[in-house]
Design a protein around this nucleic acid. Sequence first.
DNA 1: ATTAGTTCTAGTCATTTTGACTTTAACTAT
DNA 2: ATAGTTAAAGTCAAAATGACTAGAACTAAT
Lengths: 239, 239
Amino acid sequence: MNTVYATSANVAERRLAPPSLAISTVIFALRPSESSGRPTLWLPLVRRIREPFKDMWALPGGPLQHDESLQDAASRNLRETTGLVPQYLEQLYAFGGLHRSPAQRVVSIVYWALVQPTEAALADESENVRWFRADRLAELAFDHNAIVDYALWRLRNKMAYGSIAYHLLGEFFTLAQVREVYEAVLDRQLDPANFRRQIKGTPEIEETGEYLQGGKHRPPRLYRFTGTPGLGPDNRSTP
Amino acid sequence: MNTVYATSANVAERRLAPPSLAISTVIFALRPSESSGRPTLWLPLVRRIREPFKDMWALPGGPLQHDESLQDAASRNLRETTGLVPQYLEQLYAFGGLHRSPAQRVVSIVYWALVQPTEAALADESENVRWFRADRLAELAFDHNAIVDYALWRLRNKMAYGSIAYHLLGEFFTLAQVREVYEAVLDRQLDPANFRRQIKGTPEIEETGEYLQGGKHRPPRLYRFTGTPGLGPDNRSTP
DNA sequence: ATTAGTTCTAGTCATTTTGACTTTAACTAT
DNA sequence: ATAGTTAAAGTCAAAATGACTAGAACTAAT
């Protein structure tokens, strides 16, 4: 057969060409809000330097290379745009609508990642890479607003069940910090005493002997998360 | 630029060629077990008629066509192989490991579907399309055993939370039938009285005035499901 | 040094949910 | 009629949850 396609296809050729495949990543990290100081969700975006959607902000992403798995590709473009290594990385969804990109049909396999705030503070930022509050995004390129919305929905869902909040925190944390993560993501207040009781009930949370000093009140005990990142078909533990 | 690729690529060309994209579907339906008569999960497979994995059984699937969305493609190859229209269809996962297919790099976006038993009984079956018990599969082509395992895991998970069991039943059903679905999928016995209490608590289940006659015991009331298929970024209701 | 202010931590109590079980109802087959 | 079967409703204790109280342990202000 030896069918031949061209990347700069005209309309007639486009009907034959297979859709191109891209990997994108929604990267979440916590940063203190400028106003309240409480932690809020932020994510890095890159400015597009070519058409389509030139000069608009978009999710970091790019083509899949021949020698890397889907997850490796997501991990790579996360590292390339922000310099970060993800604490948590999971496939979100494959978006393949017909008119996501004006010229060419593109199927995007999107991952979502959680990074720790200490790392996120060190993240590269430049003219073309900037962090934004997840709940106050302007209009993004392609269907990326919808993708972020869905990633947020998944994050909230997973937070309610799974043990995922810890991947947004450092190695040691207080129970109040965990509660702040839940409050930031779920966007509602939680009773401190009841929350503590629930968290202490999960076996993956381990007391350390340490206390966090320096507050203007009774020093809280520090805890550690001993669980595994979790599920998914590529890296799956015991269900 | 005008880069040129060939589908029958040699090794040198393969490094440049983009991975090919395929859509596959895991289709679940309930059928009475031959031995116990209780409902069990079955799924249709197709026999491969060419290399690689010639003569082995595989999930129905094929390439993505230029004018159809991912979900449409899944729906189409479901219809083409079984003649069925899915009651429930959702994206499962994008599988993109480097060595899923021996010759060529293939990324498969896999959907999973639930069909009603009345439809499933009418499904086309032939020399090259046959239904198998989901829990007793032989070795399949590619990584399709792992894909089915993951689909089963997702099905069990969704069953525990969401209201999904009804898509494996007809329009009208008794509460005992719903329980049998849960028991088949979760593979454990459930207390009839407690199960009834829980199901009746969900507002999406509506009593009809009808009763199922013909049993050799008190006739059970028939119910109807009034909920929506649910979530996912492509068709999402209110979270 | 004492006191006020803050958060951490443990605990109480009523309500809701869950699991195990009992009882009565309504049908069929003998 | 009676036994056998499943449907359907109800009981009861245990467990989980939500609202709340109170003491402990620190800092900062007086």
